[in-house]
Write a protein that binds this DNA or RNA. Sequence first.
DNA 1: TGTAGCATGTAAGCCGTTACATGATTGA
DNA 2: TCAATCATGTAACGGCTTACATGCTACA
Lengths: 196, 196
Amino acid sequence: MSAEPAPAPPQLPTATGYALLGLLSFGRELSGYELKQWADGSLRFFWSAPAMSQVYRELERLAESGFVEQRSVVRDGTRSTKVYRLAPAGDAAVRAWLAEIPEPPVLKHPIALRVFFGHLLDPADLRRAVEAHRNWCEQVLHDLNTVRDDLGDDPAWRNAALVAEWGMEYYHGDLEAVARVEQAAIDEAAPGASPA
Amino acid sequence: MSAEPAPAPPQLPTATGYALLGLLSFGRELSGYELKQWADGSLRFFWSAPAMSQVYRELERLAESGFVEQRSVVRDGTRSTKVYRLAPAGDAAVRAWLAEIPEPPVLKHPIALRVFFGHLLDPADLRRAVEAHRNWCEQVLHDLNTVRDDLGDDPAWRNAALVAEWGMEYYHGDLEAVARVEQAAIDEAAPGASPA
DNA sequence: TGTAGCATGTAAGCCGTTACATGATTGA
DNA sequence: TCAATCATGTAACGGCTTACATGCTACA
């Protein structure tokens, strides 16, 4: 008959939780804010980056379940920050998750959608969409390039560098494929109607 | 002072709703079941295919908002089926949506994730993940090939065929990129330890 | 006779988002 | 002193999923 609150059943993390565990597995002790920054600078290129509020919620759950250890530190000045470190249970959990057969990839490609529904857009709108997509890809390529440079040839970041390189090829290929499909789609829409 | 239920405010469709409107824009009158089948055979390759229950819910909302027209038909035998046809408001709505600046693409790539967190997997697990991914891609390529063949060179399906072709290149490229990255990641993990 | 496909939904719940709220610190 | 960034959350909501429930029809 204890009056203590029932211990939370250690439920398994969500995909986002596992991703945070993965980031913590590099050994650093990080705050929610820092984890979000890092996710935005790495995971977002090939997985997804959760909202800030989601990061905090997940960290709380991970701490409740014993997958991470939480403590408050005073870093510089007087303010205290909560920082998180991977616990042994968290290490085991994320390893087990990654060893599972993966889910299929998820792709939502707005240009492919617009080509598919091409009869509902006029060529100018399609071109505007392609241009926005191209700008976005170029920004991503620029960011990835910076990331790649920052990683250098430190063996500790070799895998991250590999993925950054993969990402650059990927988005480069996307750019090329979109250009091809745009040309074909617009040619179809107005055969022979080339601009003066 | 009428006692009638307040008419539902015609709220804008969700992305899934727009996708259904897009499918209906090809002019056919379809049931929820048929729309789901079609989404699974087309949209899923480059966008996403909603769950069956989601299709029904969206169709109901689209009907409430006047974007589609609903009627019950008896198709063969005695059973009646609800079928949906695009209403003028739905046509306008989906056109306007597609003409907007698109959201950025979404990509969740399980192999990239596993390479990034490569220090948490042993090479055998990475290989298993890659193999599962490869099987998945090959299935998709097979399905896309069937789709492409079925579309033939009917000008009415020219855009769909373009996207199917794009998809085949895309997943082919994925396969190649994954093979490259796998080789590099495994080489790194065990340098000099080539199989006998 | 039973299984697979056709066909339509309801219920519950998670995941993640946006919007909101707060306050300290740093540098222009 | 103002804006940007660091830092941490809460509240409300929406989208989509899985699991469940139901029943007909065709075919082997």
